[in-house]
Design a protein around this nucleic acid. Structure first.
Lengths: 151, 151
DNA sequence: CCAAATTAAGATAAAATACTCTTATAACTT
DNA sequence: AAGTTATAAGAGTATTTTATCTTAATTTGG
């Protein structure tokens, strides 16, 4: 898989949050229901995002999680790095340890260029950009439902 | 992981073959020794490549496997498709089934472009190109050793 | 024909990943 | 005080991936 399931769920949840009114705390239970993800599993993933400061949480009634910064300032790259790490940007196509300019494998150069394309895409895409588009065109965010089924 | 272990081993083995004299059958045992891959595991991977016609095999003494066509005509894409399938070229970044132009997710378009970069790289790169480069510069093909340790 | 070398194929085991469930605690609201 | 919600840690299950082991089946060389 290009992205782990955890990462995919993290992205979907982040898009969900950015589609909501800014500043509002959203209960994880609500997200897991709407996005059709196991509550406990999602909780663990969101804890990772909270730990690195992408989300902030609030306990008790009316609590939940929300984006720390505005969704316009949060790139997909941040989510992916927080959950899957940078393997996508560093991993050798032949699986050789320490592959790089100093000790390259024969594919290294071309592979590095390709990875750069991935990196640029992830860095230049923001949550708001996608959730806005998702709402306008009512695109899918779950297997069945679109953004406009979320409210 | 971007590529599975099986796929990585398949690529390394294919590069090994393309670095050898054309037409010669190479015993799998020799390859597993040189490339430091479990013999039985490598055998299964090479069987997949044989099944789709990228390799051909010969049993009995002096048997082994070899590239069916010249290494110049074999792209990395073929190896990846045979072992990992086309998930890299089709998989949705949000994990939604059937994501495509008809039923896109909000990332679909950008993601598709990125995947196209990967596809072009894999399609345009040949085994011979890499093994030639590997031999000339004595680049690595195992964790420890380079192409010139293979003979 | 016989023995050795080799691929082919299937069964099994080990490890990693994905996911669920349980329990307990802390913080907050009413 | 009672109820709601996140946090945390850990046990447990399921699935997938990776790897090994065992047993055929095929071919060559003598």
């Amino acid at each position: 898989m290009l992205l782990s399931k955890s990462c995919i769920y993290g992205l979907r949840a982040s898009l969900y949050l950015s589609s909501k009114e800014e500043g509002q705390y959203i209960p994880i239970r609500q997200m897991s229901d709407k996005l059709d993800i196991s509550f406990h599993f999602l909780t663990k993933i969101l804890q990772q995002l909270t730990a690195v400061g992408i989300l902030e949480s609030y306990k008790g009634p009316n609590g939940g999680v929300r984006l720390t910064r505005s969704g316009e300032e949060v790139s997909l790259m941040e989510i992916v790095l927080a959950i899957d790490g940078d393997y996508m940007l560093t991993e050798c196509a032949l699986g050789l340890p320490g592959c790089g300019v100093m000790k390259p494998c024969p594919i290294h150069e071309k592979w590095a260029e390709t990875r750069d394309g991935i990196r640029q895409m992830l860095e230049s895409t923001t949550l708001t950009e996608l959730s806005k588009k998702g709402k306008e065109l009512d695109l899918r965010i779950t297997a069945e439902g679109g953004f406009n089924d979320l409210d």
